[in-house]
Design a protein around this nucleic acid. Structure first.
Lengths: 209, 209, 209, 209
DNA sequence: CATGAATGAGCCTTCATTCAT
DNA sequence: AATGAATGAAGGCTCATTCAT
């Protein structure tokens, strides 16, 4: 019985922490970080202003903890998905599908991620770099495996390939975020991977260049 | 004489307008829009705080005018460059080279462009969309020409291709902005275009998919 | 048994009351009253924040109770010491020695006493006045006795003499508190009393004035 | 004419600076530093809250500037007064009279001075020490001169004498501040100096000790 | 009795904007 | 046109106090 109580209490505390975090993320996503106020977040979370400071050091810390926790976790899950496939190209397809799925499932995260990765003064610089490295490492592995297995060209400037892929996916997400329509993001997976693999050149012309 | 005076005055005024604009852009790029103050901008421009309000309606308006003027102009120049080439692939190469050149030449503009295009609440929503459309239209033309001439595949999801190209270029620029090193951005042109055309797949594997 | 329990409990409660009081005084002495927080005091006392409100009405009340209890008690003991001597000058010497001893022994009390006696808005106005009166009454008695016995001049402005003595002792204590060095305060007794009795004038010059 | 304008402007600015300073000092004296708010001060000074920050770095800085400017100036004037007399004892009398005059003339300064000199955490530590040293140096000079001229005893513990004098004067001022009645402080000069010179002992008894 | 999470009033400070000069 | 002092609304954050457990 007391066990139960403790668990319940923990749950509730945890609850409040997450309620604030979710409320903050929603508010940040809707208004931007600097145009969001602690009062707004508190109201959205249904707590008093001061309560936020029981769980977060300050306004910045909310963002930091979000990237430390939620986003890192999401990116961690990418690897699982990649491991489910064998061939390099299937791995790539899985990676990108999962990427689109996760971002489509959590629109607010997607918005914050887009904002923070493209800002000069990033208060989550380190976390972004870590996530980015995690992602690019996966791509590197896939490409190298593909090269070993013969499904991917060997004459590639690897560090450019990584940005080429990440950039295209990011832009697809960004466009989705800014279009009013709520079309299905995940359905972009196959066409996108196809572009990565074959490019846009026709077989004829590609041999000329 | 009076003519001369007016011209000079106009010149000088114009001067002040641009000095403020440049100062603002520099400040925004360095600290972010919301962390930049009018006082900082005025100091950087060498004018009084109040003077800024003789040329701009308010702080937001500085950003609006910047995107209205400078950036739009830059994007406008892309078309000239594209027109210099004949073949679709050369046109694409020219577009991307010019894109990288312009952004490399004006790092502050590059920073602001990255920030603003990836923000939820864009106070320059319209301008961004206009520029983006301008860019995507050019890409569309190039691709369609390439398809007509046989150098580009016909089975393409065009609106995806546009994002695919713009996204990759953007990411290359973004990486450049965030890396401490000042490597040459323009040299990325050919490898990037090659990726667009051929993709990363080997000829063998590409036939399988 | 129940008796025993109650006593123990009382003891323990008492313990907690004093632990909080001591912790508060220490904290107030170190940081000043307004810069000390209930949380700091609670931590120093090893109790929860809320517990403090079981023993004290509010933050101010801690100070009030301290002056009501501890300091008043100290000042009460002065009289005992004075009674141990016969001659007025010995009584004065005993008073001052005891004063310096007590304040040296409890530095935190000394600090709080200095602060509170020299503040405009004293939340312990009454207590301070009571203590002060207690002290000045003793001095008055001593001086009057000395005058009766011929050891102290009769042409004195008594209410000034009291302040003259208390002020000098206070300043000696204050200097001691603010000097980094931990020299012996009690050793000041004799030189100080000598100054009170003889003043600084030489016998020759003193006759001139 | 333009000269005049500049002077007027300077005057007005100066005015505002001093208006804020005076308002702050008054507010601090009445409510204590920590219980005074910027809003109160601004209202008292007849300016907007923000205006205060054009003249002072922050709330603390008001106090610092006050001690740096006003009080230091007052203490500086003590020396002039001392120099007007020749004999050591007349010098001492002048010093003390001036001290009491100045503090009587500016009750708010007197209150703040008393508070700050007897606080543990003094945010004007350095200024207090400087003023205190200035004062004690003057006393030292007077005493040494008196000893050379034979009007002051040679067997004195000088550093104690300084505190003995300063302490007594301070306490006289402190008592005056806390008594409701507005009696004349300056009239204490002669009795006080007399006590310093002759002490309280009768000539007979003093020879015994 | 004890706890400590929650509250929300209140304060310092910033800064976009105005306007008298 | 240019200035920059003045404004005051707004926001982040603290902390004394309460109360459900």
């Amino acid at each position: 019985m007391p066990r139960r109580c403790i668990i319940n209490k923990k749950r509730r505390e945890n609850d409040k922490y997450h309620r604030i975090l979710e409320a903050a993320i929603k508010t940040f996503a809707e208004n931007g970080f600097f145009q969001s106020t602690i009062a707004q977040i508190a109201k959205e979370a249904g707590v008093a202003d001061g309560t936020i400071y029981l769980y977060f050091k300050n306004k910045d810390d909310i963002l930091v903890q979000f990237f430390n926790y939620k986003t890192k976790q999401v990116f961690g899950r990418f690897r699982e998905e990649v491991d489910k496939a064998d061939g390099a190209i299937d791995k790539l397809k899985n990676l990108i599908r999962r990427h689109l799925e996760e971002f489509q499932a959590d629109r607010n995260m997607a918005i914050l991620y887009q904002s923070e990765t493209h800002q000069r003064t990033r208060m989550v610089e380190d976390q972004i770099r870590e996530m980015s490295d995690m992602y690019l490492d996966i791509v590197t592995e896939i490409v190298e495996q593909g090269q070993a297995q013969g499904s991917i060209r060997k004459d590639l400037y690897l560090s450019l390939v990584k940005r080429f892929i990440l950039g295209a996916v990011d832009e697809v997400i960004n466009t989705w975020l800014h279009s009013g329509k709520e079309y299905d993001l995940v359905s972009m997976t196959d066409p996108l991977v196809s572009l990565f693999i074959h490019g846009i050149g026709s077989t004829d012309s590609s041999s000329k260049h």
